[in-house]
Nucleic acid binder design. Structure first.
Lengths: 340, 340
DNA sequence: CTGAAAGCGCTTACAG
DNA sequence: CTGAAAGCGCTTACAG
């Protein structure tokens, strides 16, 4: 193994001290302009690479952020890849690196923190995707800053960046009602994640505001509490529209309805959530909510970096999404409906 | 900012030296068993975390591996998320961490290496997804080990783990021929990536071995050389089967054919590649090739770690995939065909 | 403008 | 079994 070139090597070559080399390479004052240029040129020639570990050990800062994602999410939720991409780019832009850790079921269950924490490899953690309450509490107790991204835990005070699920679902349901729908079902296990629950509550608020009595048969589960997807059982009496907790489930339900002979959107309207790959894979393309990944990422990165510096608190920050109108909703003519 | 607990702090508390603490915590000999236990207990109580940077600066090893993925791939190829997951888990198992870097178009075009390289944040790099030849050459010239995952560059000698595209495409085309097909088209721009090219060559070998004259009209482009997807133009004379360079393109072609009134597989058979999300999204589900992500990841991780230790060379390692038979291929009865 | 000294947290010889 | 010394690569006062 050939040892890396160090500042000392450059100093020796040039007959100066490593202090001067350090100043020159870091553009600090205290070096003659001519010497600085010569040092930089020599560094380049010798293939010098800055050793960030040395700085880390001195200041206790690694300029790494751990990005922890529970296994179950990275598995099903393919749209997390755009979060990964955005996070790594945004951190890079800020002079940080992203260390990826996939949290196994086993680690989560046994409340074991990732190795990168025990080895001081990161200055803070971004948790991408929901972890259980016990694990969230554990994360709240550790001595580096933590930010939750795309979920929050009701029992913990950890700063979170979430998409404004409540508001988006409220608007989406309003949109259905404006289009004449009154029999509207919600698909999602409201105990599985905070997102699914909040989306349900937004849906519910819209119903209540519009004086539509919620029908218990119209809240339909799609998965177990632990997130395992299950078969969806259609209600006996068909609603005119389904609000689905995500595009993937919307995709499933559209196909299920089609197989039973229902036409979308002529007979039944369906809306989704996330605007992920499933939204445009579904035929007809789904009217859905586009999550503002860029904005959420940029906020989360900003928060974690500021917290490292000042340990400031932010609370839950909801980020507004955007409704994308496509072809899966039909406008119901009320009169016509009444005539049937 | 509260300074972290160090070995010195533990030593002070217990009235011993930090050398003894180091030995105790690292399970090295040279400490009494009783004292070792006491030190471990105290470390636990004081919330001690091992500072891996200190070791890094001493040995010049970070126990981090950079995982570099070109932007264009993480965008379209959603199945790379399973690579991310596997890589991070496998590295973790081996005591390493994965630093994620998304290589922007701009970095690739201007031949700029990722910051984690210039800052010595990683001991080696895994390049996930094809980079241009110039960039591949650049990677070949740097002074930490590099392994290419899921592609190789014909001009560079860098160790690569690839799925055995050639062989898989060969077998897949053989399968079509065994099922009576002789008019077989290939969809993919054979200049875009080495995968697409190798899959084409496997297809071609099968044709040649079976004395089927290759028809130039039956090699159909699906994207530009830089990877940007384009509209696919169907050939004037319809083949009985399409070999697609990936499931996503198979999905597109199936829908396009359906829209023109063709039935799959009754009128036209279609096979894909990758066994990713599109394989089972396509109706009928695609017969395709399952890439052995686990095996490929484990090999790549093994290679990079060994290279860090001994700078050994591996060359190109192809990993066999597996043909998954689903419902998108019809068996053609030759006689019946002849009667038409 | 230039550089000798001390220190970050840890480990490895080596001495007692 | 225990620990003082030296060193990894770098930076920050501080002295010249």
């Amino acid at each position: 193994m050939n040892r890396n070139v160090t500042m000392q090597d450059i100093a020796d070559r040039l007959g100066v001290s490593k202090v001067t080399v350090s100043k020159a390479l870091n553009n600090k004052e205290g070096v003659g302009e001519e010497l600085r240029l010569k040092i930089k040129k020599t560094a380049e020639e010798m293939g010098y690479r800055y050793n960030s570990c040395a700085k880390s050990v001195k200041y206790g800062l690694t300029y790494n952020i751990g990005v922890i994602s529970p296994e179950k999410f990275t598995g099903t939720n393919s749209f997390y890849i755009s979060f990964y991409k955005m996070i790594s780019k945004e951190l890079d832009r800020r002079g940080y690196s992203a260390i990826l850790h996939t949290l196994s079921h086993e680690e989560e269950a046994s409340l074991r923190l990732p190795r990168l924490y025990y080895e001081c490899k990161a200055d803070g953690l971004i948790i991408l995707g929901q972890v259980g309450t016990r694990y969230a509490e554990l994360l709240g107790s550790i001595d580096i800053p933590v930010v939750f991204l795309d979920f929050y835990d009701k029992h913990s005070e950890i700063d979170s960046v979430i998409s404004d699920n409540f508001h988006a679902a409220y608007e989406l349901t309003n949109y259905l009602i404006e289009n004449g729908h009154r029999e509207i079902a919600y698909i999602g296990n409201i105990n599985a994640t905070s997102s699914i629950q909040d989306r349900y509550l937004g849906y519910l608020k819209s119903l209540l505001e519009n004086r539509i009595t919620p029908n218990p048969d119209y809240v339909i589960s799609d998965r177990l509490d632990d997130g395992t997807l299950t078969d969806i059982v259609l209600p006996e009496r068909m609603p005119t529209a389904f609000v689905c907790n995500c595009d993937m489930v919307a995709y499933k339900i559209v196909n299920k309805l089609k197989q039973s002979g229902w036409r979308i959107p002529e007979d039944v309207s369906v809306v989704g959530f996330d605007d992920d790959i499933y939204a445009t894979l579904t035929i007809p393309n789904l009217t859905t909510v586009q999550v503002n990944v860029a904005e959420m990422t940029s906020l989360a990165v900003n928060m974690i970096i500021n917290k490292i510096r000042s340990n400031k608190s932010y609370g839950r920050i909801p980020v507004r999404g955007r409704i994308i109108i496509r072809d899966s909703v039909r406008t119901i003519n009320r009169n016509q409906e009444a005539m049937e």
